[in-house]
Simulated scan of single mutants.
Amino acid sequence: MSKITLKKIATHFNVSISTVSKAINDSYEISEQLRTKIQDYAKANNYRPNKVALNLLNRNTKTIGIVIPNILNYFFVQVLYGIESVADIKGYSIITCITNQSLEKETKTLELLSAGSVDGIIISSAADESELPGHVPQIKKLHDNQIPMVMFDRVTDLIQCDKVIVDDYEAGYKATRFFINTGCRTIAVVTPIEDSNISKLRIDGYKKALDEMGVDFDEKLIVPIGKEDDLDITMSFLLNYRPIDAIMTLDEITAVKVMSIVQSRGYRVPEDISIIGFTNGELSKYVTPSLTMVSQHGKYIGETTVDILIDRIENKDSKKEFETKVVKTSLIVRNSTKKPL
Score class of each variant (00 low, 15 high):
T182G: 02
V262P: 07
D251C: 08
V262S: 06
I225S: 04
V190A: 07
T182V: 05
E252L: 07
K200W: 06
I247P: 07
I187G: 01
V189K: 10
M259W: 03
R202Y: 10
S260M: 10
C184I: 09
I198K: 12
I198S: 15
T249V: 10
R268Y: 08
S260L: 11
E252Q: 09
G226M: 10
Y206P: 08
E219Q: 11
I222Q: 03
M259K: 11
R268Q: 13
L250Q: 08
R202G: 13
S199F: 05
Y206F: 07
E252K: 00
D218Y: 07
I244R: 10
P243G: 09
V215M: 02
D229K: 13
I247V: 03
R202M: 11
A246D: 09
T186A: 14
I247E: 04
V215E: 03
K207S: 00
K227I: 10
Y267V: 09
D218E: 04
R265T: 09
D216C: 12
I225K: 06
I253H: 05
C184G: 11
S236D: 15
D204V: 09
A188G: 04
R202K: 12
V269I: 06
I233T: 14
G214A: 00
K220S: 15
I261F: 06
D218V: 07
D245A: 02
D195S: 15
I233M: 08
I187D: 00
T234W: 06
I233Y: 15
D211S: 15
L231Y: 04
L201V: 00
V262R: 11
T186W: 11
N240K: 14
M235K: 05
I193K: 12
G266R: 10
T254S: 08
D195E: 13
K200N: 15
E252F: 01
I261Q: 01
G214W: 01
T234I: 14
I247R: 11
Y241T: 12
A255M: 06
I261N: 00
R185M: 14
N240P: 10
P192S: 01
R242V: 04
L210T: 05
L238A: 01
D229M: 09
K257R: 12
Y267L: 04
E252P: 12
A209C: 01
A209P: 05
V258H: 06
S199L: 00
Y206W: 05
R265N: 08
D251K: 11
S199T: 03
L238H: 02
D204R: 09
D229S: 12
V256T: 02
N197T: 12
E212W: 03
I203K: 02
I244V: 11
N197Q: 13
I244K: 07
E212K: 10
T191D: 06
S196W: 08
T191C: 00
I193F: 14
